[in-house]
């Protein structure tokens, strides 16, 4: 507001005061001189707030439009069956509990670790919680082995998860694409090399953690048969692999699934099991093509 506008605002207030409220001209001028700056400030902040709200309204409307458009983009495919989602859910719960009750032991010297342990019931209670969660994890492991051995869906998924030379080629292609050396992104089937890595990393983690954890749980039984240094190795491996697994989950898995710009803040597939046709075409083009081809064939047969 320039000088002139400011002047006229003050005059307007003065006029209003003298006419509607019966102040003398001098009084009105004096009061108006006091009111005008404050009014100006209020007005400016009100304008800013309205502008901000308006922009947010627009952005929301645009986002809603986009999601609607995206959801319109074709049907929802089943990516994770209920069986797989239950396996994943139980594993996630047990791993989180294991991390919360286990990692403080690795950082036992820091204050937060002591706080966490005492919050969870103290050093005589957290081992019990840890072992309950460990049992659950081992149970999920057995469940998964039975799933890939005895269900058709499991066998099919497992076949598609086996590492192949194509995965290495895909990885190189992907890096080239990232570096701008090619415009061609690798075309993935049902499981990309990133997803296969996650899957097989869990095997490694399960073998190390359940193996060493069992030795640590039943130390006295194992020591009937093995020398103490075996339990020392188990302790070291359990502690070190725990950190590696935690960091891999929190950094790598969470980024690739949830926190990357395509899915942020959360990819709901692990709950709904569904994936949109658009995402299918984008992330699993080979699988999408295969499904479409199969449908066309079935359509032809029928």
């Amino acid at each position: 507001m320039n000088e002139e506008q400011s002047r006229s605002l003050q005059d307007a207030i003065a006029e209003q005061l003298s006419q509607a409220h019966g102040f003398t001209a001098a009084e009105a001028q004096e009061l108006a001189a006091r009111f005008a700056p404050r009014l100006k400030k209020r007005f400016a902040s009100w304008v800013r707030r309205e502008l901000y709200l308006e922009r947010r309204r627009l952005a929301r409307a645009r986002a809603a439009e986009q999601t609607a458009a995206a959801e319109d983009e074709g049907e929802q495919f089943e990516r994770l069956s209920l069986n797989v989602r239950l396996q994943h859910g139980l594993m996630a719960i047990s791993v989180i509990v294991l991390i919360v009750t286990g990692i403080p032991l690795k950082f036992h010297e820091s204050l937060w670790a002591k706080e966490v342990i005492s919050l969870l019931g103290g050093p005589d209670v957290t081992p019990i919680i840890h072992r309950v969660a460990a049992t659950l994890l081992a149970f999920v492991g057995v469940w998964h082995l039975l799933y890939i051995a005895f269900t058709k869906e499991g066998r099919e998924n497992f076949r598609l998860l086996l590492p192949r030379l194509q995965d290495a080629k895909d990885a190189i292609q992907q890096i080239k694409f990232y570096l701008g050396l090619t415009d061609q992104r690798p075309k993935f089937d049902r499981f990309s090399y990133v997803e296969k890595f996650d899957y097989w990393a869990v095997y490694w983690g399960m073998v190390i953690m359940i193996g060493s954890g069992t030795i640590l749980w039943f130390t006295e039984w194992f020591l009937q048969f093995v020398p103490k240094w075996v339990t020392d190795i188990a302790k070291e491996a359990h502690s070190d692999e725990a950190l590696l697994a935690t960091l891999a989950i929190v950094i790598w898995h969470f980024y690739n699934v949830h926190f990357n710009p395509h899915s942020f803040p959360m990819n709901k597939t692990f709950i709904t099991g569904k994936i949109s046709a658009r995402k299918m075409r984008e992330e699993h083009p080979l699988e999408y093509e295969r499904i479409m081809k199969e449908r066309a064939q079935r359509g032809g047969e029928a």
Binding site: L223, Q224, V226, K228, W229
Partner: peptide
Amino acid sequence: GANVNYARG
């Protein structure tokens, strides 16, 4: 019931 294995290491 600890045995000699406890001393190995």
